[in-house]
């Protein structure tokens, strides 16, 4: 019976059909046992901490951080992502003058993956950009995992500062080239008068 080519074909198919799913199941189990427990407790802690800190305090810190370019494209995106998470973090753009909004968005969105290395709750739905790469590092060199997480986060901060400044400059250039100078001057004046949308009091 074992020599029958049809039977051999069937058993070959059966073996590999199951084999394929067994391999997938092993991979899935690896992900679930490797990442999930850590993610679950970290998420719990981070959600609790953000509740304790409270939105009011953060809003004040955010407005303070928006004043200078150096903090506007580092501290502000970090706090926004940490407290409001992706995608609501971008709503903090409303505290800024119109001409800084694109740079703030660029800076903040660029931090939505580096931040997951230390604060996975900020963008739990897209955790695999970090978790995918870092799982390999965990396997090949477990001792370097923590350093990699911190470096990804730190380099992320430097990168978003550069992106923020570059995009702020580019926005300025495009405003001039496109002849929007007058419009944006009006926006700046409105901002100076304190007409920020969405701010109560």
């Amino acid at each position: 019976m074992g020599d029958n080519p049809v039977m051999r074909g069937i058993s070959w198919f059966a073996e590999h059909f199951i084999g394929l799913f067994n391999e997938s199941a092993t991979q899935f189990a690896g992900l679930v046992t490797g990442i999930l427990p850590l993610l679950m407790v970290m998420l719990t802690a981070m959600y609790a901490i953000t509740t304790w800190i409270g939105e009011e305090r953060v809003t004040r810190a955010i407005q303070w951080a928006g004043r200078w370019a150096v903090t506007r494209y580092t501290v502000m995106p970090f706090l926004a992502m940490l407290l409001l998470t992706n995608p609501m973090a971008y709503t903090f753009g409303r505290f800024l003058p119109e001409r800084y909004k694109p740079a703030f968005y660029d800076s903040t969105v660029s931090f939505c993956h580096p931040i997951t290395a230390l604060f996975p709750h900020a963008n739990a739905g897209e955790i695999f950009v970090w978790a995918g790469v870092s799982a390999g590092v965990m396997q090949a060199a477990p001792d370097k995992y923590a350093t990699l997480a911190v470096l990804y986060f730190m380099v992320g901060l430097i990168v978003i500062l550069i992106r923020g400044i570059a995009t702020q400059w580019m926005t300025g250039v495009l405003i001039k080239r496109g002849g929007h100078e007058e419009t944006f001057k009006r926006y700046d004046e409105a901002y100076a008068e304190g007409k920020i949308q969405g701010v109560a009091e």
């Binding site: 978790a131 995918g132 790469v133 870092s134 799982a135 390999g136 090949a140």
Partner: peptide, 9 residues
């Protein structure tokens, strides 16, 4: 990211 991770692993 996952594919690269597998290669590194």
């Amino acid at each position: 990211g996952v594919l690269m991770g597998t290669q590194i692993g």
